[in-house]
């Protein structure tokens, strides 16, 4: 009905041009928008679509030339192979997935448990050379994993953390703590210190005041931060491939990579494993999306 009002008003001079096309949000523009977005989405998502297709194709269809987009036989065998070994037991990939869940989960929890109180302290207390400390903490993230992996490999061999899940959990937590501190400090800064002051006057200790009042207000920020930490740990490849070797310890990224490189590559299995690997983070991010958006924008806007 908005369109008809507009047409009625501008009928004279605007003849020949569709009035809707000139207005932001009008039909002409939205058609163009949808078309552009569709093209973009197809281009961006093509590898993902291709991966999903490959995961449900028979192996002979995977190699078909020209490639078959439609009309191939759908099979779930590859997904079965991801979880079940040929002899009927648990497959190496399924063990790797469980390892990934454990390592990513534990390292995220560890980074959060260590990082949130640290962020609170950096936000609330006057510390000597606070800025330098924070910069130092961040600087540990400046070097990409591949640069530090050799010295860490040597140290881990000395202390017996090579090829252990604990080793991976520790190194991922170490990588995520600086990030957690920096991101959470922004959130803590947003929560007025007066809540804690008031609580302390009401009879609580500083730590109780933090736990009872500030912490609940930080939940969205913690959710957002944890998702980022989780994604890092979940996707991490370099440390995982250098520091672990046995199937019982390996996480999913090196395990999936290990599928490629034999004389024949079971592309269907690779694709199915990748789909399974991609799902948990997507689902998790979707579940906490409200916190994610609220959290990220809250941290970005100054009071």
């Amino acid at each position: 009905m908005a369109v008809s009002v507009d047409e009625a008003v501008s009928a004279g001079p605007a003849r020949g041009r569709p009035p809707a096309a000139r207005r932001p949000g009008g039909r002409g523009r939205s058609v163009l928008e949808v078309a552009l977005l569709t093209v973009l989405a197809v281009v961006m998502l093509f590898p993902v679509l291709w991966m999903i297709e490959t995961s449900i194709k028979e192996n002979r269809d995977v190699y078909a030339i020209p490639a078959e987009f439609f009309g191939f036989t759908v099979t779930m065998d590859h997904f079965k192979d991801v979880f079940v070994a040929p002899d009927g037991g648990r497959s190496a990939l399924s063990v790797a997935f469980l390892n990934s869940v454990l390592v990513a989960g534990a390292s995220t929890v560890l980074a959060t448990v260590l990082g949130v109180p640290a962020a609170w302290a950096y936000s609330r207390f006057a510390l000597k050379a606070k800025k330098d400390q924070l910069f130092f903490i961040l600087s540990t993230r400046f070097m990409p994993p591949v640069v530090v992996v050799i010295p860490i490999f040597l140290m881990y061999r000395q202390v017996g953390l090579i090829d252990s899940k604990l080793g991976l959990i520790l190194i991922y937590a170490a990588y995520n703590v600086p990030f957690t501190i920096w991101m959470m400090k922004g959130f803590v800064d947003e929560v007025p210190a007066e809540y804690e002051d008031a609580a302390m006057l009401d009879g609580y200790t500083r730590l109780q005041a933090f736990r009872k009042f500030t912490l609940p207000l930080l939940v969205p920020g913690i959710a957002a931060t944890a998702v980022f930490a989780l994604i890092f740990s979940w996707n991490e490849f370099v440390f995982a491939i250098f520091l672990t070797s046995s199937d019982s310890v390996r996480t999913a990224p090196p395990a999936i990579a290990g599928l490629i490189g034999g004389t024949t590559v079971d592309w269907g299995l690779v694709a199915a494993a990748s789909v399974v690997f991609a799902l948990p983070v997507l689902v998790f991010a979707y579940l906490v999306r409200r916190h994610l958006v609220a959290g990220v924008t809250l941290g970005a806007v100054r009071r």
Binding site: D197, A198, L201, G203
Partner: peptide, 28 residues
Amino acid sequence: PAERDIAMVFQFYALYPHLRTRDNLAFP
């Protein structure tokens, strides 16, 4: 602060945002 038995009112009121008035009052 807890042992000084003093109450303070802040410029920014510092009411606990997740509590109703009743519970904000009962809190201390």
